[in-house]
């Protein structure tokens, strides 16, 4: 049984967010003037319209692991000194989809071993995440197949479920409980009917997925056997080498590090997203590449569905469907899973 379950009237949402946004930055989905829905930092809650009806196009990845970040500055004036750069910004994320929170929890594992990644955890610490359960999955979603949605079972601070004119609010972690205690006057008790309705909605949501992706089946096949060489070659031939899948993936965390000189004796060391599908990802200075271009996609798919299962106990695909949307070669992870299962 959940620790605390209460009701938040929709009319009270804005007031609550205004309170919560006082000592933390507030990030929530907003549709901008060009029609893109993104998790956006909100400075003026009264002048901003949240959009909880669409799937944000980017995940939360960039908030904790930015596309580019300066991890150190360096100075060669006297010797060669590096100064680490840390970015700490207490943030409350509201309206996060369960796939995206699952992904953050996965990144927490990735960046914890073998050591805690300072740059990542500096951004990650002191963040609160309030999720919104998906009562209607989007076109490419398959989180039901990856065990990461459409409703959260754990890991959230607060989870909201849309019951029409009100949200059912569940507290999952201590930070969530604290919010309910501190701002108790925004909430009212949940009735048995409310809880029943949420249960009903979660069952209905499960039946509304438009795609059937056999993730578990594929993981089992991959755990025990080899993938037919032809599958790799066919998929790689259609991969356009754009790196889009890795960039939009909420758990793809491979990175590059490079220097950018700013002055004759000063510069920045920059960490940026990378994609294992790029040939430059593995090619060495002399030109030799240990990974054949026929296998450009092997790393990504096996990493997500096999090696991460071995290492962390579950696949590092959260079924958000963003790579399905972005891949213009039609060789996203669902194509691979279908090919493996059919074979």
């Amino acid at each position: 049984m959940k620790e605390t379950t209460v009701i938040l009237a929709k009319d009270n949402l804005q007031g609550l967010l205004r309170k919560l946004g006082r000592d933390k930055s507030l990030v929530a989905p907003v549709t901008n003037q060009w029609g893109d829905t993104l998790y956006t930092e909100i400075t003026d809650i009264d002048g901003t319209e949240l959009d909880l009806s669409k799937q944000p196009q980017a995940s939360l990845k960039g908030f904790f692991f930015p596309q580019q970040e300066v991890i150190q500055t360096y100075d060669t004036t006297a010797g060669y000194e590096f100064t680490p750069q840390r970015h700490i910004q207490p943030t409350l994320f509201f309206g996060v989809r369960s796939c995206d929170l699952h992904a953050v929890l996965y990144m927490d594992m990735i960046f914890s071993s073998p050591e805690r990644d300072d740059a990542y955890f500096a951004r990650r610490q002191d963040t609160t995440i309030i999720t919104l359960a998906c009562t209607t999955p989007f076109a490419n979603c398959f989180c039901n197949a990856t065990g990461s949605g459409p409703f959260m079972e754990y890991g959230y601070d607060l989870q909201l479920t849309d019951l029409g004119d009100r949200f059912l609010v569940e507290a999952g972690r201590q930070q969530g409980e604290q919010i309910l205690q501190a701002w108790g006057h925004f909430f009212e008790p949940a009735t048995e009917e409310d809880v029943q309705l949420q249960y009903q909605l979660s069952l209905e949501a499960g039946g509304r997925f438009q795609r059937k992706v056999e993730v578990e089946h594929a993981c089992r096949i991959l755990a025990s056997g080899e993938v037919d060489e032809q599958i790799w070659q066919q998929l790689s031939a259609r991969c356009a080498d754009c790196g889009g899948c890795a960039y939009v993936c909420p758990t793809c965390t491979c990175f590059n590090i490079r220097d950018a000189q700013q002055e004759p004796s000063k510069g920045e060391r920059i960490r940026s997203w990378d994609a294992c599908t790029f040939s430059g990802f593995t090619r060495m200075a002399g030109g030799h590449n240990p990974i054949n271009s026929d296998h450009a996609l092997q790393r990504r798919f096996l990493h997500k569905l096999k090696y991460d299962v071995e290492k962390h106990g579950k696949p590092s695909c959260v079924g958000c469907g963003r790579c399905v949307d972005i891949c213009f070669g039609h060789v996203d992870i669902t194509t691979f899973i279908e090919a493996v299962v059919e074979d």
């Binding site: 990735i110 073998p114 990175f255 590059n256 593995t282 071995e310």
Partner: peptide, 17 residues
Amino acid sequence: RHMKCGVGVCGHCHLDN
């Protein structure tokens, strides 16, 4: 191998698992 982090996180020097 091509390497960036040295501590098993950046992914560049992957060799199967």
